[in-house]
Structures are given as structure tokens and as C-alpha cells.
Amino acid sequence: MSVEVTCTINGEQHVLPVEPAETLVESLRLRLGLTGVKKACGTGDCGACTVLVDGEALRSCILLTASMQGKSITTIEGLGTPDNLHPVQEAFVEAGGIQCGFCTPGMILTAKAMLDKNPRPSDAEIMEGLSGNLCRCTGYVKIVDSVHRAAEKMAP
């Protein structure tokens, strides 16, 4: 028996009929075609599927879509466009924080949620904030640089 969930996704209201045990990552990818949300582990361990729920970075592979009633969800598609990048996206592009790109959407959204709370994080705070997002390509150096760069761009 499906559940009807009304929520806001990337600024648009959606009414989704979903299965009780359906995860948000599956709903976003398969029902709405928001494939920027990546599924890499399915166990909440890697952070690739991170989305923003009411501004908080959460893992969509361990969230039930049925629990999203009334929530506002932002995926990477809702952050910026190629012609109008969000400063965090711009910073990752410029600072070389992207290699294969599979962890990138989750990394960017986690960084964005962190910067919204802490606009000028230290190295240690960046590392703590991104410690749940696995990247196998970069060695993280340029990801730390990207977040600093984003903080500079977002500074008032």
C-alpha cells in the first residue's frame, strides 16, 4: 500500500506515492530523475547520496521517503546551474576538488550545509565536517582547499 507524501524538492512541491520502505535516494533517482543524487553504498557509510533536508545534510539512502512529509529537500540539481553555479560548486571546480565526480554532489552539499552554519571554518572544522564523506580519488587536499575557497566566495 503506498503512502502519499507531499514535500518540496528543489523549490517545487511534489506529491509522491511511495512504498513504506522506499528510501529517498530511490525516489529521487527513479521517480523524479534526480540522478545527481548518487548511491554508492546503500548503508549510510559514504555520504555520496547526501541531500539537504530543511538545510541539514542527510544521507538519502537511509531516509524513508514516507518520512519526508512537509520537508524541503535540496539535491545537487537544486543548488546551482552550469550558468549560475553556487559558490561551493564554483569553488570545487576552480580548486580541483573534483576527480571522478561520484562523491562530488554529496561533498558539495555537505560543505554547503557546514558553511551555512560556520561561514569561516578552520582546516580542522572542515575535516570534521566532511569526515563522513568518502572520496577515493583526491586524497582530500583539494577538497579542503575548495571549502576554504567557497568560504571566501560566500563571505559578505
Binding site: G42, G44, R59, C61, I62, L63, L64, S67
Partner: peptide, 27 residues
């Protein structure tokens, strides 16, 4: 389902015993 960080994954892989008839989200 509270935070769900553990149980949602177990639901996906069928590792909740006995198989549930219902899911209750208490948040």
C-alpha cells in the same frame, strides 16, 4: 524508525526479523 541510520538499511536488505507488516516513523 527513529533516526533510521541503522534500521532503514536493515529494512532494505531484508534483515529485520520477523518481516514487519508496518513501519512507524516516530520523529
Amino acid at each position: 524508525v527513529n533516526g533510521g541510520t541503522d534500521v532503514v538499511e536493515r529494512l532494505q536488505t531484508g534483515r529485520v526479523a520477523p518481516p514487519p507488516d508496518a513501519i512507524m516513523y516516530i520523529r
